[in-house]
Computed example of a mutant assay.
Amino acid sequence: MSVAKLPKLAPIEIGWRTDPHLPIIPLSMEVKHAGCAAPHAHPRGQLIYASRGVMRVVSGKEVLVVPPSQAVWVPPDVEHEVYFPGEVSLRNLFLERGVSGRLPNECTILKVSPLLRELILKAVTVGESYLPESSGYRLMMVLVDELCQAEPTELRLPMGHDERLQRAIERMIADPGGIETIEGLASVACTSPRTLARLFIRETGLTFGAWKKRLILQEAIERLASGQSVTTVAFDLGYQSLSAFIDMFRQALGASPGQYLSGSMNCSKIDLG
């Protein structure tokens, strides 16, 4: 399903609440085939975590696909959109500006360790009915400390601004496994292979090959999370053998497809270049 056709969710007003006595306001939601009504920003930072299902977060010219082993940190006042192509158990944490200063100042995918996951789930059960110096308040501050220590990952897609590059990217997104070479893509973009290769590096910071690899990984994660088999995903995305796809996935993300989606992965092995 195209994200543009997904039903729209009403804005969540918690992000605009300012209260230094509530360093974190948790919010639990069950979402199915939906997305934001429009790009938005709010004064509270937001940790977007799906304990089940896969999300797609768009911020500026970047697209981030997020499985249950990871979460997205959105700093205060950063415009973003969130889409849920499937069924998602959503756990939001809205952080007061005063406690979010140690977290990244740009949208970042963070690895969710077993401890961080349990803290997030516990915070949701506490809700916002806690007072300063209470056990609930102390839990929230421990959660902030753990968030600040979470490892970042780089499964993101910079989009670029040049019209030729955008034409190429739109074609790749429409058919991730269909274009094998930059020569074939250049004809779609109405430019030369050499120029297109330069545009990828200049506008996204990635080579054509590295950008395509990230696109395939993002697409694979979404399809696997929706229930498609590894074999189906591998061949649909242009791989001639299942073992070649699994090897690529493991080398890039440090785990097999099943381990990655379940959170049993080693971020130190991630190689998306």
Rank of each mutant, 00 (worst) to 15 (best):
V3A: 09
K8P: 13
I14E: 14
G15T: 02
G15S: 00
W16K: 13
R17C: 09
T18G: 04
T18S: 14
D19C: 04
H21E: 04
L22Y: 00
V31C: 08
V31G: 01
A37I: 15
A38W: 00
P39M: 03
H40W: 02
A41P: 11
P43H: 05
R44F: 12
Q46V: 06
S51V: 03
S51M: 00
R52P: 00
V54F: 08
S59F: 06
G60H: 10
G60A: 07
V66L: 10
S69Q: 08
W73I: 08
W73Q: 06
H80R: 10
H80K: 02
V82P: 01
E87P: 06
N92D: 11
N92C: 04
G98C: 09
L103Q: 08
P104D: 05
T108Y: 03
V112H: 08
V112T: 04
L116V: 00
R117E: 08
L119R: 11
L119P: 02
Y130K: 06
Y130M: 05
P132A: 07
E133L: 14
G136V: 03
D145A: 13
E154W: 11
R156E: 11
G160T: 12
G160K: 08
L165E: 05
A174E: 15
A174Q: 12
D175Q: 13
P176K: 05
G177Q: 03
G178C: 07
T181Y: 01
E183D: 03
E183V: 07
G184S: 04
L185I: 08
A186M: 12
R194D: 13
L196S: 12
L196H: 13
L199V: 04
F200R: 00
T204N: 14
T204H: 14
F208L: 09
F208R: 01
K213P: 11
K213S: 13
E219C: 13
E219W: 03
S226R: 10
G227M: 01
G227V: 01
A244S: 15
D247E: 15
R250H: 01
Q251P: 00
Q259A: 15
M265V: 11
N266F: 14
L272M: 09
